[in-house]
Design a protein around this nucleic acid. Structure first.
Lengths: 198, 198, 198, 198
DNA sequence: CATGAATGAGTGTTCATTCAT
DNA sequence: TATGAATGAACACTCATTCAT
């Protein structure tokens, strides 16, 4: 009674997702190095062997996680692009980013940690680069927004804006408890998202 | 004829320093996990055994590095405290911090990476906490400065200021090449270090 | 197709036994400290890694060996307890003990060596204590036997008896070659296992 | 102002003794393997280098300790040989042996532990053999005493006697606390040291 | 005579990955 | 597809011994 190809694919995808989720959970909780393949298999309630059926190795687990992160970022950028005014776009960027960080500070920490890996790190450097590249794209898109907003020096403005946003995210993920996210959002929007340049 | 105790002390200190420098170099270049004790010994041009004469283990190498970092931060804070006006103090903080990051983006990356380690990381979490604790102290000191500056809501202002500063540091360490550090410094100072807050 | 759990259990047990036997052989031949994990793996014809699948470390190998020894002693005591008369019981103790020592003097040496470890020995002291504790239990059981035998001072008699038995075992394991085991057994039985006290 | 040769010799001997005593103390307390050369040097308040001036290595420390033990045993045998009657001789052997064990059970344990080392123990087997050889000599001497005593089967009697003595020593060194040494001495003497053989 | 800094071979242990079933 | 037993390279750490001073 063989399964249909569709059924098989469904099962495969379900297993992959379980493994992915398990890896994500553990990488975030313990870090990439401190998480063993055994840990992931156990957390995913799956055998070690099966894991290797779906992912070539530990590194590919990370690659998959990073890939999805990048897709998420791209999605946000598309959503932003669909908004009417540059003001709305910027407001959406700030709100979305900081809310996300506040909701899952551990997740943000994880990616920030990945982004700050040393250049020569045996495995992780490549993923660090990918994330940084994505940030750069985001930055370019922001420049365009600020241009549309009519700011005098859109690149500089985008730089300040990004700095403030990253800094806020870093602080939220670090201190979290009782962090005044709303005030921070307002501050950044007021400061950097208005037409009147400096 | 045995060496004098002073001579011994000198030799010991020299060796310790060599090892420390080697570890620092490699941790920054490759990361803590990817650096082996053999690497450190080779980089420091000493035997593995000698390393263990001076440091109880790999972790203590990291501890020493973190300790020195914390001392450096404390020094900066003292220097700042010795300055006359709050304006000078803030200017010095911004300038010192960003120049440092620009000079050694890899070093800043290393510590930021350490600070963003997951809570359950086997070994590194403790050092992550220490660094975060130090950041918090720095934050408190800044609050006092903004208070002296006569700002209405010094804690909020300090928060915005720290965010902008951290964000700038993060961006400098990430992109570095041709980063407009000076403009960034001016922007932060102009924005957050003037009396007429919001 | 995965193996059945029963098959796995069988394989696991077989491997555990192989490792256990290898460790026992080598510990007895070369001693605990002089035996390396590599030695054990090689002797057991398995990889080092597999050993650690079944035993947490070198020490646990020893622990398992000691545990089994203690179980064997307990079994002997049960067998003895099942015998009818105290005379039979004592005869069985003497015969069993000395025959065992004569058959495997190296095994007896090993345990005696373990029992005589210094109190502060880093690892081994605990196992030394366990074995001594077991000896003490055995002694108490013997006291009861001598009591049933109607001896005037059963504890003292048990002490003399134990001494003679231990001493004989020690000599057998030390000299072995052509040791008059039978005469020794008769002597101890004649001397200590008759009703007419001293 | 060079020292006289005699003075030098005196200093040498004093240092050697300090080291010897330190090694003895630690070997007894922690065992040979668990004692490091650093431990010995520290305990002897002497530098590691100096230790190697006096002893070729760790093993020679043990050799020296064993040598002295053997000399002590030989001395006892000479003292015994000087006694008039075989009864006195045996009484002296029993009393001397058991008193010694009772006084320093740890010392006896140490040598017994050494004697029970496996045959293939990397280093220790040789010393084990030496001690066993000495025991054998002692045994031969005892045979002669029992012969002089007029016992029918002096070798067998000596065997029983040795067994009882060793066994008693083992028990004393193992349990020690409140062990009835005197009674044990009397028992052995009564049992094995009277003319009327079995 | 005396010191202790320096060495490096040796060892216990971990863990990503493979493969027989 | 699924399992988990098996592997072995890699690594942190120890310690007897040497040697420059």
């Amino acid at each position: 009674m063989p399964r249909t190809p569709e059924e098989n694919e469904r099962i495969r995808q379900a297993a992959k997702d379980k493994i992915h989720a398990a890896a994500m959970t553990l990488f975030i909780k313990k870090g990439y190095h401190a998480t063993t393949i055994d840990d992931v298999a156990k957390e995913g309630q799956i055998s070690k062997g099966l894991l290797y059926n779906y992912y070539k190795g530990k590194e590919e687990l990370l690659a998959a996680i990073v890939r999805i992160r990048i897709e998420q970022i791209a999605e946000v950028m598309e959503t932003v692009a669909a908004l009417e005014t540059p003001e709305d776009q910027l407001r959406h960027i700030v709100t979305g980013a900081l809310d996300n960080v506040y909701r899952r500070p551990d997740v943000y920490r994880f990616y920030l940690n990945l982004q700050t890996r040393p250049e020569d790190d045996h495995v992780l450097a490549a993923y660090s680069k990918q994330l940084n590249e994505e940030s750069r794209k985001q930055f370019e898109a922001q420049c365009a927004i600020f241009e549309r907003l009519g700011v005098k020096e859109p690149r500089m403005r985008s730089l300040y804006f990004s700095s403030a946003l990253f800094g806020a995210a870093l602080m939220i993920s670090t201190y979290h408890e009782g962090f005044p996210v709303e005030a921070m959002k307002e501050q950044i929007i007021r400061e950097y998202c208005a037409r009147s340049g400096e």
